[in-house]
Structures are given as structure tokens and as C-alpha cells.
């Protein structure tokens, strides 16, 4: 039997639910040399800001048990360079819908980025990152209160016709209230979770491993937290959820969808296994067969 892997995000049809998470796939060009990236459902490109950013000092990376901490700090060439250089390069290699991941340090910056990306045809979804733990005065600050998350959502919705997904932070006391605030402010969908704020100390040198001291913890270790939050939010909101956080296998993707995700992003696993997304997509039909799933979309939120 042919297994149906397709899914839909706000009318955007995806051949399968697997999407490399922002920041773990660059702008796709490097990965196109590794395998045919057209097998992916979509790509969420590297978090982009209005102006180019070098990001944080190194070391930016720390190893953890079943995961890692990064403190890249939104290094990117800026929205205009992304539109003029990165997207044309990606278009040559990728013919599926693209998710534009946008970050900012003020509401004006978010809206200006979204306004500029709005005319890019292949960008079918805008993912607004209000959850970056690695920059001060912005990023996660917008995603840690319902009011500010709603303010960003409403402002962005006013300047684009594309579906807007708000990418939420797990570093909050009540993710449901923030998710609902985004939904009420007009968000078309939600992506969760971004990384968890973490820290490692080099006990021989008696100092933080990461130059910026703290960073975003990701990888397999955060998977149960992500499943829990996706479950809570999917049950509290009507808009679709993209599940993200610690996904490493086809079974993880199925679990995330059963929790309520309409699509699944794969993040840190790409860094240790460049073939992670490809292997998950290839394994999904086998896992579906074993579990008696004909159409993947039938299991979205099936666990109550």
C-alpha cells in the first residue's frame, strides 16, 4: 500500500511533514550538495534580521548529554542579502514551499522584514521568531509575555498576506496563554518549541563553556518537553502547530504529530547527522506500515 505522507499548513500543501528547523540547514545550498533537498516537505531558512549580523563571540557551541547548547546569536546577512543572494541560490536547488524565518529587535524591524519578504513567491509561510534566547533586547523577550507576543503577531499580520506562524519559546511559565494570545492576535499557526535556555561550565577553567555564558539547549534531550508543549498548545488552539524540538527519528515525527503537530521540524539532529531529514522521510512509510497508519494527516492530534 502507498502511504500518504502529505500534510497541509494553512492551505500550503506539503508532500511530507518534515522540515529542517531554522538555523540547522543554513539557506539550503550546502545541504543540496549532500542530498536532493527536494525530498523535504519544506525548509525553514536561517533566522533573518533587517540588518546583517555577525552574532556572538566564539565559543558558541557546547556539548551536553543527548544535546547541545548554541549561542550563535542570529548571524545572518540581513533581509536584503537573503532576498537578493540566498533565495535565488535556494530557488535553483529547491522547488518546494519555503518558510522564511524572521527575527527582530523591535516591532518595526519584524514588520519591515516581513514586508520585504512578502513579494517572494516561493516563500509560502513566514515564521516569526519571538523566541531566540541568544540575543539581548529582543528575540525571546517578545515571546515571553502574551501581550508582546500578540503585539508582534498583529503588527506582522498587518503587512503580509502570507500565513504567519509564530515560533514560541519554551522558557515561559504558561505556553498556552502565549499561544492563545498569538492566535487571538491573528496568527495563522504556531511553531514550537525553540531552544531551552541552558548553560555549561568548564570546571577545569572555572568559566562558562560558551562565550555568551548561556545559550539555547536543543537535541534529543528536549524532545519530551517539546511533545508536552505541542500537546498542550494543540489542544488549546485551533490553528495548526509545527512541532519542533529533539526530533531525530521517524517514530519521533509520528509521536509529535500524535501530540498535535501538523508538520515536524528537525533541528539539532541535522548537525550531528546531515542525513537526518532524509532518513526520517525514508523511514516514515515503514513506521506507518508497522503502526497501521495509511494517511499521516489522520494521526494529527489523535492522542487526547
Amino acid at each position: 500500500m502507498v502511504r500518504d505522507l502529505s500534510t497541509t499548513l494553512c492551505g500550503v500543501e506539503l508532500d511530507n511533514p518534515i522540515i529542517p528547523a531554522s538555523g540547522t540547514f543554513g539557506f539550503g545550498a550546502e545541504m543540496a550538495d549532500v542530498y536532493d533537498i527536494n525530498i523535504l516537505g519544506s525548509i525553514s531558512f536561517k533566522g533573518t534580521t533587517l540588518d546583517s549580523r555577525f552574532g556572538n563571540p566564539t565559543p558558541r557551541i557546547a556539548e551536553c548529554s543527548a544535546g547541545m547548547i548554541n549561542s550563535v546569536g542570529l548571524q545572518n546577512p540581513g533581509i536584503d542579502a537573503v532576498i537578493n543572494h540566498e533565495l535565488p541560490e535556494l530557488r535553483k536547488r529547491f522547488h518546494k514551499p519555503i518558510i522564511a524565518n524572521i527575527s527582530g529587535f523591535s516591532i518595526d524591524e519584524y514588520t519591515e522584514c516581513c514586508r520585504r519578504i512578502d513579494s517572494e513567491k516561493q516563500v509560502e509561510i513566514i515564521e516569526v521568531n519571538v523566541s531566540c534566547p541568544n540575543v539581548h533586547n529582543g528575540g525571546m523577550a517578545f515571546g515571553t509575555s502574551p501581550e508582546s507576543a500578540a503585539a508582534v503577531t498583529a503588527a506582522v499580520k498587518a503587512v503580509t498576506t502570507k500565513p504567519v506562524f509564530i515560533k514560541l519559546s519554551p522558557n515561559v511559565t504558561d505556553i498556552v496563554s502565549i499561544a492563545r494570545a498569538c492566535e487571538d492576535a491573528g496568527a495563522d499557526g504556531l511553531t514550537l518549541i525553540n531552544t531551552m535556555l541552558g548553560m555549561r561550565i568548564d570546571i577545569a577553567r572555572r568559566r562558562p563553556v560558551i562565550a555568551n555564558k548561556m545559550g539555547g539547549f536543543s537535541g534529543r534531550a528536549i524532545f519530551p518537553v517539546a511533545v508536552r508543549m505541542v500537546y498542550q498548545v494543540a489542544n488549546a488552539c485551533k490553528i495548526p502547530v509545527i512541532g519542533c524540538g529533539g526530533v531525530a527519528t521517524a517514530e519521533d515525527a509520528v509521536e509529535m504529530m500524535m501530540a498535535g503537530a501538523s508538520a515536524v521540524q528537525v533541528g539539532a539532529e541535522n548537525l550531528r547527522n546531515p542525513f537526518a531529514c532524509k532518513q526520517i522521510i525514508e523511514n516514515l512509510p515503514k513506521v506507518m506500515e508497522r503502526l497501521g497508519i495509511e494517511r499521516l494527516r489522520d494521526i494529527i492530534g489523535i492522542v487526547k
Binding site: E30, I61, M68, Q75
Partner: peptide
């Protein structure tokens, strides 16, 4: 040498600033 995330140019974990702009030690 720099502490790396991926080692193949996608995570920006090992970036340095050079006289010709930001570059990845791994790429």
C-alpha cells in the same frame, strides 16, 4: 581551530570575523 557544531557549514557555530567579512572555520 574553533569549537564546531556541525562541521559542514550550516550552523554558524564556528564563525570568525576576517578582513573579508564573516567566515566559517569549518567551511
Amino acid at each position: 581551530e574553533e569549537r564546531m557544531g556541525c562541521g559542514f557549514g550550516i550552523c554558524m557555530g564556528c564563525s570568525i570575523m576576517t578582513t573579508a567579512g564573516a567566515k566559517r572555520v569549518c567551511k
